[in-house]
Design a protein around this nucleic acid. Structure first.
Lengths: 200, 200
DNA sequence: GCCCGTCTTGGGCAACTGCTCAATCCATCT
DNA sequence: AGATGGATTGAGCAGTTGCCCAAGACGGGC
């Protein structure tokens, strides 16, 4: 009565290929991932790649999008359990400290953005995933009533986090200790509608 | 006594190859640039690539770093002529509107960051270029006395700008109109040393 | 026993990869 | 006129690429 072992093992192999794809994109860069390397990493024959996937491009897109979706869902959950946005931001920044900017996750993210700018289908898929987490952050900001422009703040905040990931490898001292106070200013209430600057 | 035309034309070809390299990195991605494509774009024979450069990697690194240096110098100049940091920020954001996130410049930037995370020599070179503009921004912030932590603010600001470039292709409505007010909050004086949040 | 559907293998193809190299070009100098 | 020396060409090498496909493996249903 157990499920068909053949189909099951097939699904398992497919999954292994996707995981290998995500790893190799981060390690070598999107366009440097080959079917042979993929198969070797997944410990399967080279021909299997094109049995489970229509093309190499399709495999990479599915692998990257899956990984991004996974982290986005994780962060979304973290965002809803945190008592305040500020604490959620601190949590995210702590996680960003763990990511050195040279780890699988952050590199894969950047590679996916880049690939999306060159592949219309991937761009559309990535767009909805990012819109989801942005709406989630914006909703949280609106509920807490911290800022006047939740949508824009959420967009800039997420972009800033990705930007910090991107800069990390070429900026050794870039840790959450220094960046957190600055970023928290994004979430500060803009009391002064006009200007509050001192003289020159 | 005029310069040797041969050597001069050689330099010109070398320059053309570098320009073709920068273009192709942006168009196809770092690891998808081939010597043949390079030569064709520069309108020279395929063998010339390895006459003027030690390797394909060396050509790409020099091309990318040169382009980054160029834009950094340009922005540095713009930063010093602007009356205030706020106006300089607005200027940078205006330029960012021109860059759609799918143009040669912004894609090349991201590709270079990514390549730097995989090539130690490139990483070091890019590090000093970025440190230069960061110091420039930080110095300006310190002179204007806008924020308490100029270094960290400069780092986050630059990361945020690159992040916005990165997000642009997958976030259609991301223009300076929406982001400028948010980013300007980064440059707001932190009056309250502690917290200033109202109750929930 | 047999068949069947699914997964898996590995060899093969045409195209492309980075890089090398002998040969050629051509303005300049002697 | 001949020599010089850098720039340029295009063929060629060995290795890799994405993708295809005939052949086999291996389970469950008859």
């Amino acid at each position: 009565m157990a499920a068909l072992t053949a189909a099951d093992r097939g699904r398992e192999v497919r999954h292994r290929l996707l995981r290998a794809g995500a790893e190799l994109i981060a390690e070598r860069g999107w366009s440097a991932v080959s079917t042979r390397a993929l198969a070797e990493r997944a410990e399967v024959g080279p021909g299997l790649v094109h049995y489970h996937f229509a093309s190499l491009k399709a495999l990479l897109a599915e692998a990257a999008l899956g990984a991004v979706k996974g982290l986005v869902d994780e962060l979304t959950g973290l965002l809803e359990t945190a008592p305040t946005v500020q604490e959620a931001l601190d949590g995210a920044l702590g996680a960003l400290d763990a990511y050195t900017g040279r780890d699988t996750t952050s590199l894969l993210f950047t590679e996916t953005y880049l690939a999306a700018s060159r592949d219309e289908a991937l761009r559309r898929d990535l767009e909805v995933v990012l819109a989801r987490i942005r709406d989630s952050v914006a909703g949280r900001l609106r509920r807490d009533g911290v800022v006047a422009d939740p949508e824009e703040t959420a967009a800039v905040l997420l972009a800033a986090l990705d930007g910090l990931m991107l800069h990390r490898p070429v900026h050794p001292g870039l840790t959450s200790a220094g960046t957190a106070p600055v970023l928290r200013r994004l979430l500060s209430r803009t009391d002064s509608t006009g200007d509050a600057e001192g003289g020159s």
